[in-house]
Amino acid sequence: MKLALGPVLYYWNRDTLSDFYAEMADAPVDIIYLGETVCSRRHLLRFQDYLEMAGRLAAAGKEVVISTQTLIESEFDVKALRKIAGNGNFKVEANDMGAVRLLAANKVPFVAGPTLNIYNPQTLDLLAGLGANRWVMPVEMSREALVALNAGRQTKPETEVFAYGRLPLAFSARCFTARHHNLQKDDCQFKCFDYENGLDLKTREGQPFLTLNGIQTQSALVHNLIGELDTLRETNVDVLRISPQARHTGAIARLFREALAQRLTAAQALAQIEELMPAASCNGYWHNRPGLEFIRADQPVAA
């Protein structure tokens, strides 16, 4: 299985981002997704900056993919989308059907992103026909559902699974980070800068529940499939996505690599990775359970 680094979902400043990718150029990941997928107001890095970064990472031997914004609302967003789709050099991850239309028209192969809602083989085959040579499973899909999809598909796009990180669960027009500061989105003062791993939302009895990340809502818990490498392999998953966090992302990639090479057992890898996480693990989705549950590989599933 290959390892991929997902797009950075938070708003980090320019230097942080540039240091981060300099480190990732040497990290044991095969594929790097780049680009702003959450909010069009996060404009610190321009399209040209991403292209330059992409060039550097490609020169370091990485497969680079530019990810499109997920929620395309305005003409401004559509124009940005056209630039990415027509970049002519790097592969693109389409996170909206508008992106698929543009990429298919340009006849360039693409990655069908996790928000395209591919839940059945008919839809996967259709997108493969339009040029998708890899697809990212919706985050809420289970192993069981993936087995059923694989049994019915006629095309061969690679399968990528979101294997590590806070789950991107929902997108809105409203910015919840701005709302927390009693600001309107159009005057958000870029409060996302203050939350390098998002803003924690707890229940009134203190249970970590969600993470506010601008217009995106994430899980509070960290989706973590490092203990599931055997079942991922058995299900013919080709690529594991690691979603960047503010610290230790390189170390996390190394642990996945070690575990994939079977130099660490599942239990060892889990114990070590838990030291590096901003919150506890969950993996319920993979087990066809509520996403926030965590089922240890050797533990029987409750009925």
Partner: peptide, 8 residues
């Protein structure tokens, strides 16, 4: 594009 309900 909302999986909050299945998460919970």
């Amino acid at each position: 594009r909302c999986a909050l309900s299945s998460y919970a």
